[in-house]
Amino acid sequence: MAATLAVPAASASERVRERDDLTRYDTALVPADARARVTAVYDRRGGTEVTLRVRGLLPNRAYGAHVHSNACGATGAAAGPHYQYVVDPVQPSVDPAYANPENEVWLDFTTDARGNAVGRAEVDWQFPANRRANSVVIHSELTQTGPGVAGMAGARVACITVPF
């Protein structure tokens, strides 16, 4: 299934990408009937807003979520590392100078009593045409920020391929 690309009526210079098929890696944390949708809006000022909407996950639970470099695959590792606008020369990246919500897209969320939530992030850059991001991964824990652990968020429990 290809992503839907539409131009919103509000501005011909904005582009929207949406994707809603979900690959599950941990059905205890992401039940079979869970759903997720990713929307990315690129504005004319050069920024990007990414929104992740989930429903049917475990109620009242925190999850981490990030944009990743590769498409989803048979395992969570297939999605590759977090997408970084300025790439950390040391991988895996755990340096807060690179692994931070200004250089990556962090979409952490906490579900409500029904297992629904929205994670939203805005960055002041767009994905370059020669180095696009390709997925959003949902993680088992909220994202850590300290030195040596920055960007870590536990196991990869689900993934949505989104060709940004």
Rank of each mutant, 00 (worst) to 15 (best):
I138P: 03
V157D: 03
L5K: 13
Y85I: 07
S13W: 14
R61Y: 12
E104I: 04
R24W: 09
R114T: 15
D26L: 02
A65I: 00
R131H: 08
N70V: 03
A9R: 11
A6K: 13
A28L: 11
A99W: 06
I160D: 01
R53G: 04
L107N: 05
P59T: 03
D26N: 10
V162T: 10
A2V: 14
S140G: 09
S69L: 15
A153C: 04
P96S: 08
E49I: 12
P101K: 07
P147L: 15
L5D: 11
F164I: 12
N60D: 15
V118Q: 10
R24S: 08
G76Q: 06
A6D: 12
R120C: 09
W106N: 06
D88K: 05
D21L: 12
R45H: 15
T51E: 12
N103V: 02
A9F: 11
G80Y: 01
A3G: 13
R114P: 08
G64H: 00
Q144V: 08
E141V: 05
F127H: 11
A65G: 05
T75A: 11
V149W: 01
A97W: 04
A74G: 15
A10S: 15
V123S: 07
P163G: 12
H139M: 10
S140E: 08
N130E: 14
G73I: 03
E102Y: 13
V87I: 15
R45G: 12
A71T: 12
Y63C: 03
N103G: 07
Y83H: 01
E49H: 10
A74K: 12
G148D: 05
P89D: 04
S140K: 00
A62R: 11
V54T: 04
V105N: 00
D95V: 02
S135D: 05
N134L: 11
T39D: 09
R17A: 12
A34E: 06
M1V: 14
D95L: 01
T27F: 06
D95W: 04
R114K: 13
R53C: 01
F164P: 15
A40F: 03
M152N: 15
P96A: 08
G46A: 04
D33I: 13
V67F: 00
V7D: 09
W106G: 03
R55Q: 13
A129M: 10
G64Q: 01
P147E: 14
G154C: 01
R61E: 08
G148M: 07
H82W: 12
Q126A: 11
V90Q: 15
A65F: 01
I160E: 02
A150H: 06
G46L: 07
I138M: 06
V162C: 09
A129N: 10
N103L: 02
P96F: 08
C72A: 10
Y25S: 03
L107W: 06
V162K: 00
R35A: 15
D95S: 09
L58H: 05
G154A: 02
T23V: 14
P163W: 13
G64T: 01
G47A: 10
P59Q: 02
A113F: 07
F109P: 00
V38G: 02
E122Y: 13
G148W: 11
T161D: 08
N134H: 15
T111W: 10
A133C: 05
P96N: 05
Y83T: 00
R24E: 05
L142S: 13
D20V: 01
T145N: 10
R120H: 10
E18T: 15
Y63N: 00
